[in-house]
Every structure is written in C-alpha cells, then in structure tokens.
Amino acid sequence: MKIAVCVKRVPDMDVRFRIGADNISVDQGGLKFDINDFDAWAVEAALQLKDKNAGSEVTVISLGPDVVQETIRKALSMGADRGIQIKADKVPFDGLAIAKALSAELKTGGYDLILFGKMSPDSSNGVVGPMAAELLGLPCVTAISSLEIANGKGTAKRELEGAQEIVEFPLPAVLTVDEGLNAARLPSLKGIMAAKKKPLQIKPALLAEPQITVRKLELPAERKAGRIVGEGAAAVPELVRLLQTEAKVL
C-alpha cells in the first residue's frame, strides 16, 4: 500500500495566546510547536496499516516554511518512510489554497490512501482534507474513529451525535481522522536517530492567490469577576433571586 499523510505544525494550545502587532496573526514569541494531534493519529493509522501490509510505504507531506521539516521528521521518527516539504513562506489561512497546493503533489504519488487530521486547532477550518479529495476526484470520509482495509475496500466508523455511522469506500480514498482512532506511538530514540537519514524532498508550493484573508484577530472580551453570594443551603434563595432578577436566566 502507498499511503500519504498530510501533517501540520501547530502551536501547543495550552498557553495564553497574544495577538501580534499586525492584528491579524498570533504572536509566535514563546510558543512551542509540535505536530497537530489529529495528524499524529493519522500518521499512527498509516503506520499500523504498514505493519499489517508488508511492502507498504508511508509518505509524510507538510506545507510551510523550513520549520515544518521538524514536524515531518517527527513523523519519520515514529516510523514513516519519507517526507516531502511543500515549501511556502507561510501557511495561508485559505484552506482551498492549501488543498490545491497539496493535491498538486498528491496526484503525482499514486497513493492508495491519503490521510489528514480532521482539523487543526490553530485555524479550526477542517476543510483541507475534503477539498483535496474533491480536487483529486476521490471519495472522502471525514472524522473517522475506526478503520479497516481489506481487499481494496475500506470500512470506517464515524461518531455522530448519539449514534455511530459505519461507511464503506473503495480505494483510493481520502480520509480525515478524529480523536479515538488510536493513540499515537512515541518516537523511539532509535527512530529519532533514523529519521535524520530518511529522504526528505523539498518542492516549491504552487500557491494560488488566497480568496479568504484574515482582516482582524481579537481576543474574547475579559470575563467579569464572579461573585459569591453566600455559602451552603442558606444562600440558595438569594442565588435564585439574582438569577431571576439580575442575570435573567431563570
């Protein structure tokens, strides 16, 4: 099987973000970056398929400046075989522009399966995978939480509100990965050393003029400090009264 996994370098979300001087981007100072979790689960899914299907090859692709090579190498250190950087000065906000640049590379690879994380937490659009599928003319299953491949056909599960959907699809196909599909393996120390020796190609991105641009970025309004109206059961009548008359939520 030939499997491609598209990965994105994202900031560690567990920090207090600041807005940059241009008012349209996040201040990158002090941020730590790593592979998007959803993409790491996509890499893990690809590696599990590789373990089951001898002779498989896993290619990791990332669009962006040279710092994304570190993200590609993380996937290589987990066990992927080769990497491709689609080089661009920055990652555009416009998902269609990203999808076009990635699909230009993906269509030349003859992949049986193309995996994406279902979204990235920094831009939260969740469109690149389905758009790339459309551009490639391939079936697309989004937000999968289980995956089986057998006899040139795939079966995947999707978690819906209060239900699960089991879908079947032919190969080649594009899948986007949800939480719960697997737990990504840690790169072993030998894997980290081996990753340095694996091939990593650099190709220029064919980036279309973005059709969507960010005009302004602002932080949510500060929440007002809470108020303690009292303690224990004795405070309940006052709390109810305030919720009715002041907050007007009851």
């Binding site: 730590k32 190498r73 072993s188 980290i192 340095k196």
Partner: peptide, 26 residues
C-alpha cells in the same frame, strides 16, 4: 514548563525530540 533561560534554544532538534519522548513517557 520551566525554561526560564530558554535552554531549548541551545538544544538540537534531536535532543529536544529525545527529551519530548521521555517526558511524554514519564
């Protein structure tokens, strides 16, 4: 995370990757 002196900036990518693996394991 304690990195008051930004020691990360003088570690190589490989050194940080090793540290991150063991940190996650722990």
């Amino acid at each position: 995370m304690t990195d008051f002196y930004n020691l990360d900036s003088v570690l190589s990518e490989e050194e940080r990757a090793v540290r991150d693996t063991i940190r996650a394991f722990v």
